[in-house]
Simulated scan of single mutants.
Amino acid sequence: MTPTTTDTPDCTKAAALLHAVADPARLAVIRRLADSPACVCDLQEQVPIALNLLSYHLKILRAADLVTCSRRGRWIDYALASDALERLHATLPAPPTRHPGRPSASAGDVATAQQYTAACSPQCADQIQ
């Protein structure tokens, strides 16, 4: 049996990291903490969910090493891990490189079926048309 892309350790780690932010509440926490560290009470004001649910989401983010916490008396302050955004960015594929002979497309361009057909092998082109 040949290994697939999803069997590689890098893909497994990347999927676990993306899974940690694949919830609207957790993504909202990440976005909020990207601005500055915050006390859990401040997070609850900006991510309006029950405190026990917020604690659960913070636990998931801490387990993924995306968020750090420190205790200040009765309060717990949360911060985005220093490398969190870089690690999340690294999970995504790099933009494709431009191949000689193929026209480059700008970010706003939408490829047509004819453009796809021109770039495909003959077997693939038959399936697109």
Rank of each mutant, 00 (worst) to 15 (best):
Q123D: 03
D77H: 02
V47P: 00
A119P: 04
I49Q: 05
H99R: 15
A63S: 13
L43N: 04
V47C: 02
A84I: 10
P100D: 14
L51R: 15
D7M: 13
V40D: 04
P93Q: 05
P95N: 11
S121V: 09
W75R: 10
D42H: 07
D35Q: 03
S36Y: 03
D83Y: 14
L80R: 09
A118Y: 08
L80A: 12
A118K: 00
T117R: 00
L51T: 13
P9L: 06
A38N: 04
V29W: 00
T91D: 08
G108P: 03
Q129M: 09
A107C: 13
A125S: 06
P96H: 07
A81R: 02
L92N: 01
A22W: 01
R72H: 10
C39W: 15
L43H: 02
I49A: 09
A20Q: 00
D7Q: 08
P24D: 10
R26L: 05
L61P: 00
P48H: 09
L58I: 08
L18M: 11
Q44I: 07
T112Q: 01
C120E: 12
D65S: 04
L92H: 02
T12S: 10
Q46V: 05
S70D: 13
L54T: 05
D65K: 02
L58Q: 05
G73R: 05
M1F: 06
L85Q: 09
C120L: 09
L51M: 14
P100A: 14
A118V: 02
C120Y: 02
T8E: 11
R87H: 14
C41Q: 15
G73I: 09
T4F: 09
V110G: 12
L51C: 13
A125I: 00
R26P: 04
V29P: 01
C41T: 14
L18T: 13
V67T: 11
A81N: 07
S104I: 08
T68A: 14
A84Q: 05
A113D: 14
Y56G: 06
T68Q: 14
T12P: 03
M1A: 09
P100N: 12
P93I: 15
H89I: 15
R74I: 13
K13Y: 05
D77C: 06
A84H: 04
I76N: 11
Q129T: 10
G101W: 12
M1S: 12
D42V: 04
A118H: 07
R31M: 07
